[in-house]
Design a protein around this nucleic acid. Structure first.
Lengths: 215, 215
DNA sequence: AATCATCTGGGACGCTTGACCAACTCGCCC
DNA sequence: GGGCGAGTTGGTCAAGCGTCCCAGATGATT
């Protein structure tokens, strides 16, 4: 409980709040518990933040940006879209399975924000970030595999996000990893069927794999 | 506030609790608010229920069974699987869009049950019911369209439930009905591609549409 | 009419919560 | 070295929570 700069204390409290919320859920995330987890006094919470809501907004911001960064996976060029999509989702799955509490917290925060008046913009922002990440990933796949998507990108991004959300949510309930992974891979394969190989005179510099035999 | 049999009072309190939870969220669903909504005294809550938890369990049970019944849609025979799947999901969507609060409450209850020690079995039960409903619907489609599914039913049911959950969750956040419906229909079409028409000497009476040209 | 189980109402208990305050301590700068 | 502001501390506040209790009203049974 030494003397710490207010900015550092702020960060400590935010991280402590995340830990508590992951472990016990947002409903059980009280100012006292946060302070205890951070090794600070209760009063320091209201010294560093105007209110509990301001703290939780910072928590939400931190989680969203952290998740957005974690979702950024590299896409190897010269591979077909189906494989890339499957590999990307499997890589994401490793992260999800590693920290279930964080995923659970993400959903809880979404619903919490939806209920709290004035905080619903945070839920919207959270999903806009997610859709943007999905769009970016799908476009990276298109570029790497030399294909085009047969549906407009907003629809496609929403479909991908839908699949991820649904699978994760189902898994959080029964923790049936094989079943969840099977559904995820199957849905990824289905999404991959929306990739069309454009006429070869259209795209040139893109990496092409063997099965580009014009019909 | 007249005199009511304990059994009736029980039912009134459960329905009142559902209304409050739909409107304000589970976190704001207190015993006092429930009693006020039901037009009963606070003490009657603990006269009809051993504890608040027992009440909430009844609420969860009521919502799950109600939702399971609502999801049971008729499937017209003689139509192709794609159309049936699309129509079924569109019919479900009408229900979802009509009462957003109930959908939101469903998710909140899931997460609530997952956190509450000893109540996680309710979350599991909720999803088992849902998977069962999906399985039943998919098998009804298979029978009506005279097709077979190219994946094992458990995987397929989970895929369908994943799609529904994901779409509804996304819609609850941004309330973008066209986008949600577009994603839902697109995903339904993708799922329909998993329907295979068996050799005609296997099934006889089933209705067949035109595109049965053996390759 | 008397009895009895059933149901209601108001009040109270003990606890937790978010928020706040005045007093105190430390380190830095003029 | 004496002020001074940033940071800490324990205590306190009102509000709200789940739970419990008990005197009294009610309606059926005898």
């Amino acid at each position: 409980m030494g003397r710490v700069a207010a900015g550092d204390r702020r960060q400590q409290l935010i991280e402590a709040a995340i830990r508590v919320a992951e472990r016990d859920g947002i409903a059980a995330t009280t100012t006292r518990r946060i302070a205890a987890e951070a090794g600070a006094s209760l009063a320091s919470v209201h010294y560093c933040f105007r209110s509990k809501q301001e703290l939780l907004q910072e928590v939400l911001t931190a989680i969203i940006t952290e998740l957005a960064e974690a979702a950024r996976g590299e896409v190897r060029p010269g591979i077909d879209a189906g494989t890339l999509l499957r590999e990307g989702l499997q890589a994401l799955w490793v992260i999800v399975e590693k920290e279930p509490g964080k995923q659970q917290l993400t959903y809880e925060l979404t619903h919490y924000a939806l209920r709290q008046p004035g905080m619903d913009s945070f839920a919207l922002w959270q999903y806009e970030m997610s859709y943007a990440a999905c769009s970016a990933h799908l476009e990276a796949i298109a570029a790497a595999a030399g294909i085009t998507w047969s549906r407009p990108m907003p629809v496609l991004a929403r479909m991908l996000m839908t699949v991820i959300d649904g699978v994760v949510l189902g898994w959080l309930v029964d923790r049936d990893s094989p079943a969840a992974l099977a559904a995820l891979v199957s849905l990824a394969d289905l999404l991959a069927t929306l990739a069309v190989t454009p006429p070869s005179d259209e795209l040139e510099g893109a990496a092409l794999d063997g099965d580009l035999s014009p019909g």
